[in-house]
Amino acid sequence: MLAESLAISAVLFTIGVVGVLVHRNAIIIFMCVELMLTAVNLTFVAFSRFYGATGQVFVVFVMTVSAAEAAVGLAIIIAIFRHRQTVNLSDINLLKG
């Protein structure tokens, strides 16, 4: 049971990482990050079944934080779009040495 759960979350996490690495669109990257968070949440829940409720508490934390992060992140993306008329990260590279 645990092994299956971990395998699913590993697959989910990998999909998220690959999505972050290959996509250029900020919204998609953002969703991929959410996917990674979800994968981690799944791991927590799976472990909590064997090691007590602590994992579930963490899941609630992660969801809260990711909700806040979504709010801030989306607001930033909207602000960028208003200035640059694009959310393609290849074009947003002003902060360089």
Binding site: S90, N93, K96, G97
Partner: peptide, 12 residues
């Protein structure tokens, strides 16, 4: 400074 390309993809 060469490492700081400004491209998030590379950072990722």
């Amino acid at each position: 400074s060469r490492l700081q390309t400004g491209s998030t993809g590379i950072y990722a």
